[in-house]
Design a protein around this nucleic acid. Structure first.
Lengths: 156, 156
DNA sequence: CCTTATCAGTTTATACCTAAACTGATAAAA
DNA sequence: TTTTATCAGTTTAGGTATAAACTGATAAGG
């Protein structure tokens, strides 16, 4: 990983640090994602589907647009994912006003109740390399990054 | 984001913290990814292609398998991505022994030299919400997570 | 009332990524 | 030798994601 330094010997140290941070972050993220998918396979669902179940389960009823915002993905993506999940009988989409209202079916709720605790436990195991204090530190650093970038977004 | 707490009122605090960490991490990661892609569009390439250029540029010659390991993706994925990049004339694949040796073409090298500094600068701007000290902290936390999870991987 | 804007969701084209099965070649063991 | 294992890369099927163009409905202004 440290070989990134070979990339561009002329660049400033801070810039190299940022590139290194990005590589590490994406490595950890992708590793975790892959593992979570493998873990959730036991219940026949994917991380994306899990995320959708969590959001609808915690906030129903909500619209597709709201869901897209919470998941931080495009509405086009939500359309696709929900199509599949509706077909599987986990969620309902009901036209109401100019929006579509999302709710869990009983089968969706059952999966939600069963899987969430397992996934929470699994996710905890992924972060066990850090003690509780460090986990809070990480959370705080991520929060700062978020805020800063949202501000930048606003200024454009 | 704090609404995750509503998900499962019975779960232990540490487990909820882990789920929260995961949501924040994935949010920041995906946001950064999207922005990087938008930024790199100016030069007509994607983050994945940039990563490939960086790795080949810094380590050539290397094989597809080595590239897959460095990028932490599957070899099937590498096959696909390189197919496109070969077609665009940025890289060369030469059969040698039982492996394929990857090198940059002159056009690939040119892009590499031009884009890397810009992307480094851009990436630095993404982490500007943190001071240098905090950036090092974040790097260290990610390193710890990595190590812990690689150990777990080994034990299976 | 009619026109125009806005808004929720869909579609399309394209790229990324995985797991798992497969191909073809080299190497190792019998 | 013949068989078997291993190894690098490819293929396939399926899921995830985007941007951008589109549809159809409601709302707002003239």
């Amino acid at each position: 990983m440290a070989d990134i330094e070979k990339t561009s010997p002329s660049s400033k140290q801070e810039e190299r640090l940022a590139l290194l941070l990005w590589f590490r972050l994406s490595r950890f993220y992708n590793q975790s994602l892959r593992r979570s998918n493998a873990h959730l396979k036991e219940w026949g669902l994917t991380v994306t589907q899990f995320d959708v179940l969590v959001q609808i389960g915690a906030h129903e009823p909500l619209t597709q647009n709201e869901l897209a915002e919470k998941l931080f993905v495009t509405k086009g993506n939500v359309t696709q994912v929900l199509g599949k999940m509706e077909q599987l009988g986990w969620i309902r989409r009901e036209q109401e006003w100019r929006k579509k209202v999302l709710t869990l079916t009983s089968s969706g709720r059952e999966i939600f109740r069963e899987v969430v605790p397992h996934q929470e436990q699994f996710q905890a195991s992924q972060f066990q390399g850090l003690c509780k204090e460090e986990q809070k530190q990480l959370l705080e650093l991520l929060r700062k990054l978020q805020h800063h970038n949202e501000d930048m977004e606003g200024k454009r």
